[in-house]
Design a protein around this nucleic acid. Sequence first.
DNA 1: TTGCTACATCTTTTATGGTTGCCATAAACT
DNA 2: AGTTTATGGCAACCATAAAAGATGTAGCAA
Lengths: 323, 323
Amino acid sequence: MATIKDVAKVAGVAPTTVSRVLNNRGYISEATRKKVYDAMEKLDYQPNELARSLYRKKSNIIGLIIPNVSHPFFSELTNFIEYYAYQAGYKVLICNSYQDSIKEKDYVEMLKRNQVDGIIIGSHTLDTSDYLNSKLPIVAIDRNFDNNIPFITSDNYYGGKLATNLLIEKGCKKIAHICGPLEINTPANKRYQAFIDIVTEKNVDYVIKEAKLDIYKSYEKIAYKLFEENPDIDGIFASSDMIAASIIYVANEIGKKIPTDLKIVGYDDINLASLIVPPLTTIKQPIKEMAELTVKVIINQIEKRNVKIENILPISLIERKTT
Amino acid sequence: MATIKDVAKVAGVAPTTVSRVLNNRGYISEATRKKVYDAMEKLDYQPNELARSLYRKKSNIIGLIIPNVSHPFFSELTNFIEYYAYQAGYKVLICNSYQDSIKEKDYVEMLKRNQVDGIIIGSHTLDTSDYLNSKLPIVAIDRNFDNNIPFITSDNYYGGKLATNLLIEKGCKKIAHICGPLEINTPANKRYQAFIDIVTEKNVDYVIKEAKLDIYKSYEKIAYKLFEENPDIDGIFASSDMIAASIIYVANEIGKKIPTDLKIVGYDDINLASLIVPPLTTIKQPIKEMAELTVKVIINQIEKRNVKIENILPISLIERKTT
DNA sequence: TTGCTACATCTTTTATGGTTGCCATAAACT
DNA sequence: AGTTTATGGCAACCATAAAAGATGTAGCAA
């Protein structure tokens, strides 16, 4: 690989001059500028960003820790995060934590060693204290830490409310809610809270099942068990579209008709939601806008601007064919 | 952030001694080793990988260029690539090219500037010559360059053959194949070739439609058009599960029964395939194994070991409920 | 006892590729 | 004459690694 010295030699100038051309500082004549550019082209010179980062103490790399990129919600989020980060001149290092706290901690340390400028954390097992002792910019997705780490989320309570109300309006008499893991306090739990509040208020019969973040097999098991224990269930509010898809699958296997026998509301509105059969009624999280805001907040932190701690984006109900 | 010098000062030794403790080389007494470790702990010292990479001329970062992480096939692939790369001590920088050749070139240059140790390219627009003039280790996924760039793929011809034969065996009289973009010569085109060979050989009526890589909307349009132009179609071989899912969706909309009126075979066997209704018959690409091999080949290249140019993994037919 | 070698232990120096500040020099302008 | 523009050269810096060098100690033969 050509270095700045090689370029200087070929262009017949000093390395300092090349650096000046590269960084647009000081006085440079057009003639010299051209000579330098020609030399760079001739040598296919690419400045070594490692050396630059080392000097500048800024790598322009953002670490992204998520449970699993193969989960559609996270893959869509990752896609947009990379998109906006790249636009702002940042690169994204991707880390799958598999919701394993040891892996998560490992990744945080690895990212620090690699001098990332900030970490976006969409995975949820780590103890807050592991972040506290670091001055590194951090943004959490769907997690409200008790300290001052900014987080991005959507209006989960309202989402839960809309979903539950819709099922009741459509005439469901016994509703199940399959929620995500409740042991960690995340804003997503407000979906659960809203569900409980509404069914209690309206005095509707209900069931709760808890699902760990997974992709399918475990969701199917939960669905089978739910129908076995509660054959009279006629409405389900699933806290993710993947769970909802699994339920539709299982409902089909055991011969329940959707939406006549059973109505389903999902959550997220991943790409898949409109594609499955029947198309899924769901609460749309603004994934693209969440990604955009996440990138904006992390960069604002990196560049020492003030950021809001709470960043809650609106959700909306998308009615399709499962209700 | 604490540096090696801070550690040295606290431990009362020279910076080099700390470096030698870190890298386990040279002679170090147990007493010194302990002093150094204590100092590192006290300062919460993390070695700066940027500086290490600069010196070693090795960043342990692999660049991954794919069309779009939010596409399930690529999100699953990315997941496994990250998994195996991390196991081998490599990090993954993710790049979405959106099949845009300018973005793709931009990304390649960015990755070079950042001194990545190798590039995995799953995106397919770039001219080979852009790679040729670089001594950087490269592995392509599903792309057979005419030069010596190793590539990973699966047995596309056999996959196309299995899919087409299955539809014919199941009694289809007029089969459509929705293939991927044919303008670039990729191994995936062998699915198309196999399809043509079989229908010609067995003298079965057929239709071809070409689909650009996209996620849904465009697939649906193609499906609508296909059914409009060919109402008598009774079998479809889709070159990806996402296309197949879109077809199932459209078939449902226009009242075609699957598998009675219409049989469908997908390709990839993404997670979703078993989950959609009806569960999709498909050709399984060994995504996990492909990712594992991809990482293995790129690392072998990085570490100057010999690698095979052609890496073709076996596929298999997964019969579910759409045939 | 001396001299030599071998080795353990740690330090000094140089290198990695690039940026920047400072000073020197000189020509071209006000 | 003084300012602006243009360039070179040097040193310091970023955090780390490695080659080479310094120092001390032990073993062993003369």
